[in-house]
């Protein structure tokens, strides 16, 4: 059962990686990375049970709790760039 879950997760990870590498837009890649993180959480959780080491779930908790911070940083990055592009635009008109 766990092995079926692991294989399915690995296939999904490969597909997400394909999307992240192929693109074509930035948002495809951001979504792909986010999904890859979620699949890693699932994979590690399933592996922890296969190994019979549920205490390794700490690692899964770390990913579950802080993996989304990178996405916030991406949002902030694009917001900053848009703000700065907006500031530059009027300067060119003058």
């Amino acid at each position: 059962m766990y092995y079926a879950v692991i294989v399915a997760t690995l296939v999904t990870m490969a597909l997400a990686l394909l999307r992240a590498v192929r693109g074509p837009t930035v948002y495809d890649r951001v979504l792909a990375v986010n999904m890859f993180g979620t699949k890693t959480v699932l994979l590690l959780a399933a592996l922890a049970f296969v190994f019979g080491r549920p205490d390794f779930l700490d690692l899964v908790l770390v990913y579950a709790l802080i993996n989304f911070i990178g996405v916030f940083a991406v949002l902030e990055f694009f917001r900053n760039r848009a703000t700065r592009a907006g500031e530059r635009q009027p300067a060119q008109h003058e």
Binding site: L17, A20, V21, G23, V26, R29, V30, A32, V33, F36, G37, T40, L43, L44, L47, F51, R53, F56, D58, L59, Y63, G70, V74
Partner: peptide, 24 residues
Amino acid sequence: FVAVMLMGIASLLIAASFFLLDAA
């Protein structure tokens, strides 16, 4: 920017590999 996004994936893969090697 694409490189930064892909680095995130690389980090996840490395962590999963360490995990498989029992190096929690």
